[in-house]
Computed example of a mutant assay.
Amino acid sequence: MTAFTPIASLAGGALIGLAAVLLMALHGRILGVTGILTGALLPAGPGDRGWRVALLAGVVSAPLAWRLATGGWPVIDVPVPGAALAFGGLLVGVGVTLGGGCTSGHGICGNARLSPRSLVATLTFMASCFVTVFVVRHLLGA
């Protein structure tokens, strides 16, 4: 069963949108998390790594901020084995490489800039998700 969380979802979406706008306004950069991670590991030039590492540190430390604010860790329920997560992550990495960007880069920033390439990429991501969920839930019975 999937939980319906409109307030938390709206707040999360607003924060992601704000982060994307601020990164573009302050640094002229697109908030594509996979590209940011790649640039942190393999910097393109001098001065390109610091902001990427800082942004990733903020993403990773968010659960700690939640704990400090609420006194408890965020509840994360992942009903699949670790091997399935690793395999899914590998598939996402291949898809991001083939698609020339990730869901945050294309779906949030690219579509906001009215990029036709990002619209096609986002529709492809979504169609792939729909097919995957259908196959896993209805054909494989998981």
Rank of each mutant, 00 (worst) to 15 (best):
P79S: 14
A65W: 15
L91V: 03
S118E: 07
F87H: 00
V133I: 07
A54M: 10
D48A: 09
N111V: 15
A121W: 09
G82I: 15
A69I: 12
A14N: 03
T70A: 06
L56K: 00
I7C: 07
A57W: 05
G141T: 08
G71A: 02
L123R: 07
G93F: 06
G100W: 01
I76F: 07
F125I: 09
I36F: 09
A65F: 15
R29T: 09
P79A: 12
M126S: 05
L119E: 06
T97W: 13
G72A: 08
V78K: 09
A83W: 13
R67P: 06
F4Q: 12
V78P: 03
H138K: 04
W66K: 11
G93I: 05
I16F: 10
V131E: 08
F87K: 00
G88Q: 06
T97H: 13
A57P: 01
L55Q: 00
G35D: 07
L31N: 10
A83I: 09
A20V: 06
A112P: 14
T122G: 01
G95T: 09
A127N: 01
C109D: 13
H27D: 12
C129F: 07
S128V: 11
V78Y: 06
L31V: 10
G58H: 11
L140F: 15
G45P: 04
G71F: 01
T2E: 13
L139E: 01
A3F: 14
G141S: 04
M1Y: 15
C109I: 10
R52C: 05
R67M: 15
A69S: 14
I76C: 08
P79F: 10
F125T: 02
L68I: 11
T132E: 00
A69G: 08
V120W: 03
W73D: 08
W51A: 01
G71W: 04
P43K: 00
H138E: 11
V21R: 12
V131D: 06
H27A: 13
F125Y: 10
L55M: 04
N111K: 12
R137P: 01
V59A: 10
T2P: 12
G110V: 04
I30F: 08
G100R: 04
M24I: 05
M1D: 12
A19M: 09
S104C: 07
G28N: 07
A19K: 07
G110H: 12
A112C: 14
A121I: 05
